[in-house]
Design a binder for these strands. Structure first.
Length: 563
RNA sequence: UGACCCAUGGUGUAAUUGGCAACACGCCAGAUUUUGGUUCUGGAAUUCAAGGUUCAAGUCCUUGUGGGUCAGCCA
C-alpha cells in the first residue's frame, strides 16, 4: 500500500451540498443545526426520482445529526387527494426513513400565510388585480421584453385590504381577482414581475375542507413553510433556481430575524427507457397502458416494490448516481446492478422452470422418489440447506436442449451429458417429437454413481436446473421488460408522443413449474430462480395459485454472445 | 436581440481546491465455478473549443460553442 492511500483512510468525496453544509457548520451558521425537508405535492405517487431526493434530504439529516421533515405541499386542492398522501407516507417509510416529529402540511400554515399576505398589503407590497389570467399573461412581457404595469397596481391599501377580504369571503368567482406581490414588472427574471401569491379556488381541500376559497401559490407558501419549520437547507431541483430570488424576497419582506432558510438546487434524476414526469405517469395509469400506479413496470416506488426491489437496493442506487448540477440520464442498467448486488447475497436460490420440456429418465425406477439436498445460497452458508424431490420424470427449460446446437453450447444435446443441479449426470438417449416435428419429450439415462456430493471424478460442462414433474407446483410468472422501446421515450416522429414508444412486450405471462417448497411463499418474498433471475411473490398470489414477478434477469454472457 | 445555470471515458460521479486524471456501471479478454450467476485478474476508453496567466491549468482569466431553465391564477 502506498503512503498516499494511508493518508486518506476511505474518506468519501463530498457532494456540493455537503460542502455547503460543512462550510455552514464551520462558520457556526444556524447554531450548527442541519434541518432539511422532503416536500412532495400529494398529486401522484412517488417515483425513483423522488427516491433520490428522499435519500438526499433524509441522508443529509442523518449524516449531520440533524432532522428532516416530511411536508406535504398541499396548496392546490384541485389536484390533491388523500390517496396520494397515504401512498407517500407508506413509500417513505418503506424506503427506511423516519421523518421528524409528524407529517407536516403547508395547509397547516394557511392562517399564518393569510396574515402575511395582509401584512404585504399593509406595507404596500401587494395588490389585488382584476385583470383576467390572459391579460396578466399578455402584460407580463417576454423573457427579452419587459412587462406592463397592471392598471390596478396603484389601488389604496384600504381598497386592497377590503378586496382581499372579500376574496377570502367568497364574494368572487374563480379567476375573477388575484393577489399579486408588487415587485418589478421589468425585471429580467420573470418570476419577479409581480407574481401571483393568492388565487381564488372554490374547491374542497383534503384537509381544510371548505374553510378557504383562496389558496396561496407555491412560491408564497414554500419558503414560508421552510421558515416556520426552521429548515436550514431547502434542497430542490434545478428548475427552481430562477425562483430563488423570489424565495428570498418573500422571507426578507415578511420577517426580521437573522435566520434564513437557504434554497439549494440539484439536478433531478432521469432514467433511460422510462418516463418520470407525474403527468405522463398519470396518463399511463388513466389510459390503462399499465395496471395502476404500482404496476411493476412503473418507475414508481410502489411499482419497484411490487416488482421485487429492496429498499436497500434503491438507497444504494441513490448513493451511486451522485448529486450534482448537470443534467443527467442514468442507465437503468445501474438500477438493475444494484438489485442484483443486494439480492445475490440475501435471497434463497430455488428451482423453477419457466418453459418446461419433459425429460424421462429411462433407467430410473418408475415409482421411486428420493430427496436431494441442496444449499439455499452458495453466498451464505448460514442460509442452510433444503431437500428437493427427484423422480423419473422431470422438467427442464426448453432452451436447455438443442438438437442442432451452435458452438460452445454446453447444455443438453443428442448423445450429450449434463449435470442436474444437486442431482445426477444424465445423458440424452432419445428424442420424441410430435407430428409438427417439435420436440415434446427427451429420454435420458442417468448415472447413479454421479449423485451430487459423491466423489465421482466425472466432470461435465453444463449444469441445469430442473423440477420433478409429479411434485412441481404450477405458478403464473410475469416477465417484465422495459416499458419503452426507445432509450428516450420522447424521441418520436412528428405528431407522435411517448405513448407510441411503449413496448408491446413489456409484460409476458408464462405458466411455470416450480419446486414444491414454494407452496408457502408469502407476498413480497424474494427468490433467485436458479440460472434465471430474481423473482418476487406478487400480491395477486394466493395459496394454490402462485404468482411471481420477475424483478430482473441474471447477467447472461451466453445470450449476449448468441442473441 | 434577456436573466440564470451547466459542460471530465459510452453512462454517472470524483480529483487533497493550481501539482502524475480516478471510482462505479457498461464493454472486451482470461481464471475460478455443480447457476453461462457470484468471485478474481487484466484491458480498451476521458477534461467542449481557442487564446491568456503560470515552472505547472480539468481547476484561474477572456472569448466562443453546445445544452438546460424561466413568459400557470401548477408544484
Amino acid at each position: 500500500m502506498s503512503s498516499k492511500e494511508e493518508e486518506k483512510p476511505g474518506k468519501k468525496a463530498l457532494n456540493f451540498i455537503e460542502e455547503i453544509i460543512e462550510e455552514d457548520l464551520r462558520t457556526g451558521k444556524n447554531e450548527g443545526r442541519v434541518h432539511t425537508r422532503f416536500p412532495p405535492e400529494p398529486n401522484g405517487y412517488l417515483h425513483i426520482g423522488h427516491a433520490k431526493s428522499i435519500c438526499l434530504n433524509f441522508g443529509l439529516a442523518e449524516k449531520y445529526n440533524g432532522l428532516c421533515n416530511l411536508r406535504f405541499d398541499d396548496t392546490n386542492p384541485a389536484k390533491e387527494e388523500v390517496e396520494y398522501v397515504d401512498s407517500i407516507l407508506e413509500d417513505v417509510k418503506w424506503l427506511g426513513f423516519q421523518w421528524h416529529d409528524k407529517p407536516y402540511y403547508a395547509s397547516d400554515y394557511f392562517d399564518q400565510l393569510y396574515a402575511w399576505a395582509v401584512k404585504l398589503i399593509l406595507d404596500g407590497k401587494a395588490y389585488v388585480d382584476d385583470q383576467t389570467a390572459e391579460e396578466i399573461a399578455a402584460n407580463r412581457g417576454t423573457p427579452t421584453r419587459p412587462g406592463n404595469e397592471s392598471p390596478f397596481k396603484n389601488r389604496s391599501v384600504e381598497e386592497n385590504l377590503q378586496l382581499f377580504e372579500q376574496m377570502k369571503n367568497g364574494e368572487y368567482k374563480d379567476g375573477e381577482k388575484v393577489l399579486r406581490a408588487k415587485i418589478d414588472m421589468s425585471s429580467p427574471n420573470m418570476h419577479l414581475r409581480d407574481p401571483a401569491i393568492y388565487r381564488i379556488k372554490h374547491a374542497e381541500h383534503h384537509r381544510t375542507g371548505n374553510k378557504w376559497c383562496i389558496y396561496p401559490m407555491y412560491d408564497f407558501a414554500h419558503g414560508e413553510s421552510d421558515y416556520l419549520e426552521g429548515i436550514t437547507h431547502s434542497v430542490c431541483t434545478l428548475e427552481f433556481e430562477v425562483h430563488r430570488p423570489l424565495y428570498d424576497w418573500f422571507i426578507s419582506n415578511l420577517v426580521e430575524t437573522e435566520y434564513r432558510p437557504r434554497q439549494i438546487e440539484f439536478a433531478r434524476l432521469n432514467l433511460n427507457y422510462t418516463v418520470m414526469s407525474k403527468r405522463k405517469l398519470l396518463t399511463l395509469v388513466k389510459e390503462k397502458y399499465v395496471n395502476g400506479w404500482d404496476d411493476p413496470r412503473m418507475p414508481t416506488i410502489s411499482g419497484l416494490r411490487r416488482r421485487g426491489f429492496s429498499p436497500e437496493s434503491i438507497r444504494n442506487f441513490a448513493e451511486k448516481v451522485g448529486v450534482a448540477k448537470r443534467d443527467n440520464v442514468i442507465d437503468v442498467g445501474l438500477l438493475e446492478f444494484c438489485v442484483r448486488e443486494d439480492l445475490n447475497r440475501k435471497v434463497p436460490r430455488v428451482m423453477a422452470v419457466l418453459d418446461p420440456l419433459k425429460i424421462v429418465i429411462i433407467n430410473y425406477p418408475v415409482d421411486q422418489v428420493e430427496y436431494l439436498e441442496i444449499e439455499n445460497n452458495p453466498e451464505d452458508e448460514k442460509m442452510g440447506k433444503r431437500e428437493m424431490p427427484f423422480s423419473r420424470e422431470i422438467y427442464i427449460e426448453k432452451a436447455d436442449f438443442m438438437e442442432d446446437p451452435p458452438k460452445k453450447y454446453f447444455r443438453l444435446i443428442p448423445g450429450g451429458e449434463v449435470r442436474l443441479k444437486a442431482g445426477y449426470i444424465i445423458k440424452c438417449e432419445n428424442i420424441i417429437k410430435n407430428d409438427a416435428a417439435d420436440v415434446t419429450e427427451v429420454h435420458c439415462s442417468y448415472d447413479p454413481e454421479t449423485k451430487s456430493g459423491s466423489d465421482s471424478s466425472r466432470k461435465v460442462k453444463g449444469t441445469l436446473h430442473w423440477v420433478s414433474a409429479t411434485h412441481a407446483l404450477d405458478a403464473e410468472v410475469r416477465l417484465y421488460d422495459r416499458l419503452f422501446l426507445n432509450e428516450n421515450p420522447d424521441d418520436v416522429d412528428e405528431g407522435m408522443d411517448y405513448k407510441s414508444n411503449i413496448n408491446p412486450e413489456s409484460l409476458r405471462m408464462v405458466h411455470a413449474k416450480v419446486e414444491p417448497g414454494l407452496e408457502s411463499a408469502q407476498v413480497l418474498d424474494k427468490f433467485q430462480f436458479q440460472r434465471l433471475g430474481y423473482f418476487c411473490v406478487d400480491m395477486d398470489s394466493k395459496p394454490g395459485k402462485l404468482v411471481f414477478n420477475r424483478t430482473v434477469t441474471l447477467r447472461d454472457s451466453w445470450v449476449k454472445k448468441n442473441p
